[in-house]
Design a protein around this nucleic acid. Structure first.
Lengths: 185, 185
DNA sequence: TGAGAGATTGACTAATCAGTCGGTTTTAAA
DNA sequence: TTTAAAACCGACTGATTAGTCAATCTCTCA
């Protein structure tokens, strides 16, 4: 693993555990087993490191999710697949999940950053389709996406403290119905 | 206004603007117009200050909300009243809202802290009632509350970037239906 | 082989930070 | 009026911080 990746892994772990505030750059470098200088070689500032990590995580969840949906699926099937992919990815990557929550609720975050990512753009397009087909409530597509996202987050938080339910696909389906009922007409 | 309150006001503004990380205690004291020492007289550590602010905000939103619900209301009416109270309170107190989002998604937060507050306890009791009456989905009461909360947050974020909709009560009712559909059976 | 570019080091620094402390003023009750 | 506690001040400190830099190493390709 190259040092840039090592740094991001270590940073993710420390940030999710101690927050942006509680994590010194020197500590990241030390625990990653690299020199202090190389951190600033790859990431000019601590903020750049944080932002780079955000885009890296979004990229990974995007490619993971995209691999799951298939062409012939109905709208509800597609939404279900994306919902489930998001839930499971976040459960399997708890540090990424914690990092994202912190980042998206910090002053770093803005609506421009959110809109700039393909993952959001794809989801918004899907929302538009659902509205056109009169399946979704007639609301701003971006809002529908944000509602879904926040329900995914809440679901993940809940399944994290109830791990015995994580393998119960029947229960997960019931959790999906919450999100579906929220946006469907 | 006493100095303790002044400090909390200033801290809230600075934290919501620059985050916990970006706000020095010395700056809080300076902009509050008090000495550095008095901050640590009232709050032994920066963390204590942050936690005290959390409980203060929860208290205020709790008393505000409680004043709105009336005895004879149906379950849906009560939920609507609480939903609307939360949305409007957060819109009117954007700094409190930003602070809460940051806090609740930071490593400071835990499920124990959440459960410890009366606001949460009251909401959970209401959720239990809804489940008993077969009006809500049969899920953990705490989960139903958390779902509602996250939908309130998303709604507030949305109304913040669309201020022209903030006075449109008809539109707000449609936004409430999202949350209602999510939890109702 | 050699030259140039990028990767890597770790000691270093200037600034900033949370928290302390010795002392003064204000408050309120006795 | 006395007294003691609480409020208050701001200079101070030791630790920590993000970020720099001059030097060395490693890789690549001509």
């Amino acid at each position: 693993m190259d040092k840039r990746t090592k740094l991001m892994h270590t940073a993710k772990r420390l940030f999710s555990e101690h927050g942006f505030y509680g994590t010194a750059t020197a500590r990241i470098a030390k625990e990653a087993g690299v020199s202090n200088g190389i951190l600033f070689h790859y990431f000019p500032t601590k903020d750049e490191l944080i932002k780079a990590m955000y885009f890296d995580i979004k990229d990974r969840i995007f490619h993971y999710s995209l691999g799951q949906v298939y062409k012939g699926a109905t709208l509800k099937e597609s939404i279900y697949t994306l919902w489930l992919a998001a839930v499971e990815w976040n459960l399997e990557n708890p540090e990424d999940f914690d990092f994202m929550l912190q980042f998206e609720n910090s002053p770093y975050y803005s609506i421009e950053i959110e809109k700039s990512h393909k993952y959001v753009q794809m989801s918004v397009e899907l929302a538009e389709k659902g509205i056109e087909q009169n399946v979704f409530k007639h609301l701003t597509p971006l809002l529908l996406f944000q509602l879904m996202s926040s329900l995914v987050d809440t679901t993940v938080k809940f399944l994290r403290i109830n791990p015995e339910l994580q393998t119960d696909i029947e229960y997960k389906n019931r959790l999906f119905e919450i999100a579906w009922d929220a946006i469907k007409k």
